[in-house]
Design a binder for these strands. Structure first.
Lengths: 162, 162
DNA sequence: GTATTATGTCAATGATGCTGACATATTATA
DNA sequence: TATAATATGTCAGCATCATTGACATAATAC
């Protein structure tokens, strides 16, 4: 039986170890997003709004197409959420100067405030986890997370490695 | 400006480092679940079905209430998914012997097959990430993930630490 | 001047979650 | 024994978030 599992999994990682990894991801991600979800619910927003606000805050002036790339959703899905955020004055769209077809996205003051409320909660949580785990652990966390994601996603982290 | 950020974040972790951590979680989780989602879509199932199948497979004979605890959803939400899985012969409910109110959940052969298809994909992905990162990194990953989740979730990992 | 690009919108559909209300066994307790 | 609590299930309604497909407009590229 143990032999069988070793054949199935030739890296000598036990089925149990890998299942634990799967579950670590599940519980950590769920808990990590739960508080934000609660904050957003008060504004009648959902996690999708959070993601848009986060990445627009992270990349001021981002093009709609680039945001779609990052989020990995369709423009129709983004449309409803983005229109809402623009309508309710969390995000402004500025026509691109070099290419006037573009609608470059920026947070408003109101948007920045919400972004900060959401992000700082997650940063606090992560900072505590980092502090408890230590610098070596954080580097290990980074390596495993990068390895677990698709090649295409890793490019988002390459520039920050310089 | 840098001073200000240090006050906000007294652990001497830069805003940038913590944002990167947030994004590592976002991209890794998204990519980690994407393949499974695609497999499930063929069966007209979603991620919720995956989670139920996974945890029933992990804890054969689990009570409905315990499953609800793990998933962190309401019984009404579980009901739709679970009924479907029972109706389509992926899961069987066996009346508890000591307490006949309980409906103890088990995978059928069909359920085990789907569970294996879904889980082994994620295990393969994680095994590759673990191998590339190395044992020290894996331990760091574990520490950070445990620290990022709620206290209540950590108990799911305590028994496996013995 | 035509093709492509960037963006937006309408409509229909499905998955996943929620609250609230109510129902049925079964077990525990006063 | 009568009543309360527990374990589970179900119905109805609602919101969010995603999809596909079709079509539209403005601006840029060839």
């Amino acid at each position: 039986m143990a032999e069988l599992k070793s054949i199935v999994n030739p890296l000598f990682l036990r089925d149990e170890d890998l299942r634990q990894g799967i579950e670590l991801l599940f519980f950590a991600y769920r808990d990590f997003t739960a508080r934000g979800d609660a904050i957003l619910a008060k504004q009648h927003f959902g996690r999708a709004h959070h993601r848009v606000i986060y990445f627009v805050g992270r990349h001021p002036g981002i093009r709609v197409s680039a945001l779609l790339d990052i989020l990995g959703i369709t423009k129709q899905s983004l449309s409803r959420v983005l229109s809402q955020l623009v309508r309710e004055d969390y995000i402004v769209q500025k026509t691109g100067t070099s290419d006037r077809r573009q609608r470059l996205l920026h947070l408003t003051e109101k948007g920045r405030a919400l972004e900060h409320e959401l992000t700082s909660e997650q940063q606090t949580r992560l900072a505590a986890a980092y502090k408890d785990a230590g610098a070596v652990a954080v580097e290990g966390f980074r390596k495993v997370m990068l390895g677990a994601m698709d090649m295409g996603s890793r490019k988002h982290f390459q520039t920050s490695e310089k």
